[in-house]
Amino acid sequence: MNLAAQINSVMAALILLTSFGLLVQRRMYALLHIFAWQGLFLSISTAIVGYVSGTHHLYISSVLTLVLKVILLPYILHILIIRLQIHKEVETTINVPTTMLIGIALVIFSYHLTSPIRELSTLVTRSTIAVALATVMLGLLMMITRKHAVTQIIGFLSMENGLFFAATSATYGMPLVVELGVGLDILIAAFIFGIFFFQIRTTFDGLDVDQMAKLKEED
């Protein structure tokens, strides 16, 4: 039991590490790989929690995560990148060290925020709630700091990973129906993003979301 909790903590640490990796990585393919790794760690963590708590539907969630977030979504995005020919380096709006510092501040903030829950909770996973929250915030931070539409989607998906992780670590996972629904939503979102990318590129001749500033009404 203790061993399982420790492995889970390691997984949490790895998820946090991949979040930071997403935040600093400039190259598109590398981003995809890191995202896939994050999904893998999440999947393992879910399986461990399922084993520890004896809630067997978490195994299904785990497999679902593996299929969706480690294989299918990276594959779709990979195809998109090839089709759209956007494998070059990606620009950030804030420089990387600053982003890292903000990210560290967010992690400390998350620990501060979840400290009352850690004291009250009796679950084995209670120490990882802070990491889950930090993952959500780092995903949002990634969406803010990146200019490119595809990287913003990856940030969004990483946020979703964080939420999923928060659910498993805070309450041993959501009911299976909800998780199935969320999984389906993610899949559909990926398709819609794909369509939108093509539309955005044909309209703006590029995938830089800064172009959308042109839509603003002029004074």
């Binding site: 709006t93 949002l140 969406m143 803010i144 990146r146 979301v209 959308m212 500033a213 839509l215 603003k216």
Partner: peptide, 11 residues
């Protein structure tokens, strides 16, 4: 008009 700025607002 920049999506990042709107995201900063929600953040």
């Amino acid at each position: 008009g920049r999506i990042q700025v709107y995201l900063v607002y929600s953040f």
